[in-house]
């Protein structure tokens, strides 16, 4: 079970972000020491057309599908509108706010402290990871998803 003592915060932007903006904000965030986990969230962008007569056809997009965060490639599967963060200490919240202010200059955003990630395994988590689940995985990715999280080399 994840240690519930870790503070969490949520960034919600007024507009859905372009891949370029996501790249910019994530690179600013990963440079801040003391962020344990980041979840990027938003409506899904499927690789295949999911419904209708064209179901199953490839769904090519004109935007960037892969961004570079730190030195790691991250595949974007969603149009990002929410970023969840788990922090080691709440002292870095002002630095996160500052990073947001720099990047989100054309629209507003909200930064809220609270509890946003799941801290206890659900039945689906249990079925997927078993009783000895890695606490870092709980609440991080959809357990039904076949792709896991992306690990970005930390500064420690």
């Amino acid at each position: 079970m994840t240690d519930t003592e870790f503070p969490q915060c949520r960034i919600v932007t007024e507009r859905f972000l372009n891949p370029e903006t996501v790249e910019k904000i994530l690179n600013k965030l990963v440079a801040i020491e003391g962020i344990r986990r980041i979840v990027i969230n938003g409506p899904s962008i499927p690789q295949l057309v999911p419904y209708g007569p064209a179901r199953g056809l490839p769904n090519p997009l004109s935007g960037k599908a892969r961004i570079l965060v730190g030195e790691t490639d991250v595949d974007l599967r969603v149009q990002v509108g929410t970023i969840l963060l788990e922090l080691e200490t709440r002292d870095i919240v002002p630095r996160i706010d500052e990073a947001c202010r720099e990047v989100f200059s054309n629209f507003t955003y909200g930064l809220k402290e609270g509890k946003f990630m799941r801290s206890t395994p659900t039945q689906t988590d249990y079925a997927k990871y078993g009783p000895g689940a890695d606490e870092l995985m709980i609440g991080l990715v959809d357990p039904k998803n076949k792709t896991g999280p992306t690990l970005i080399q930390g500064t420690k």
């Binding site: 932007t13 507009r15 372009n18 409506p43 769904n59 997009l61 004109s62 149009q79 054309n106």
Partner: peptide, 17 residues
């Protein structure tokens, strides 16, 4: 849903750009 940065409505198939 919220609009995208460029003011377009979200479309997961991105039919128009």
């Amino acid at each position: 849903l919220r609009l995208a940065e460029d003011g377009m409505m979200f479309d997961m198939l991105q039919r128009c750009v």
